[in-house]
Design a protein around this nucleic acid. Structure first.
Lengths: 135, 135
DNA sequence: GCAAATCGGAACGATTTGGTCCGATTAGCT
DNA sequence: AGCTAATCGGACCAAATCGTTCCGATTTGC
């Protein structure tokens, strides 16, 4: 139940981006310097955020990133899923993966499913706009 | 945001133990056979559950494990913490660890703290008695 | 006193993760 | 129009964690 360092960095970077004027072009170098995240790591993180559709990227000189949606429309769950993959406490909750030998006779799966929804709901309730607030 | 396989197995084993009459002596071999969890893995998991205080163990022939408390007094969060360690989404939330270079100037930490409490609350709200129900 | 059964901890291999680097692409300037 | 500089995108490699297995310590029952 711990999120990876990359996801942690992703939250920090996204919050920094949300504090900037909307529509401005943010380079990975700029946000890395502002947040203190090492540049190569920031590049990797922002790349994943872009391919997940949370950031839109522009290549070449003068390029960079910008938020794909308003900060209020991006949730903490979105950011975590962009970097870590689907939020599923167990493999058997993800629809496509069935590598659990106990599946079929497992008695606890439905309960875990409910718990997973509760956790996911808690993370979906936190918007990027909130994360960017001064506190 | 995915729990490890060991924690997953721990939930399955604990639910199986809770379905048995309270006070009975359950050996690792018995629960392994009943749940389908490989025996060596079940041993390791139950060892951790015992040292965390969720199970009490008795050594020697005729020994085994039994629940330390009633099933209603054990939460899903307890089981996960016994196997995985404290539920803390980021290192900086755990009090004793301070290996984040951003700490001190980090703007998002208080918000993550609130999110962490929400997740933890969702897991504490699920009791082992519920998990042991037929569905 | 002996033997069987069970827990406890240590060691190994595999998978995932985190970090770094170099190539592809595009705008802006000369 | 060509060139240069800046920036993203993907591939590669080291490190840590996780999962599994095995063997030794301990205790009851005969």
């Amino acid at each position: 139940m711990r999120l990876t360092s990359l996801a942690d960095y992703a939250v920090v970077v996204m919050a920094a981006a949300a504090r900037r004027p909307a529509g401005a072009s943010l380079s990975a170098g700029l946000l890395a310097e502002e947040t203190g995240v090492p540049l190569p790591t920031a590049q990797k993180v922002m790349g994943r955020l872009a391919s997940a559709g949370l950031l839109v990227s522009a290549r070449g000189a003068g390029g960079g990133f910008r938020l794909a949606r308003a900060a209020g429309g991006i949730s903490l769950a979105d950011i975590i899923e962009a970097v870590e993959g689907p939020i599923a406490m167990t493999n058997c909750i993800e629809g496509s993966i069935h590598d659990c030998a106990l599946e079929g006779s497992c008695r606890v799966k439905p309960h875990l499913n409910a718990a997973n929804d509760a956790v996911r709901g808690a993370l979906q309730g936190v918007s990027l706009a909130t994360l960017a607030e001064a506190k």
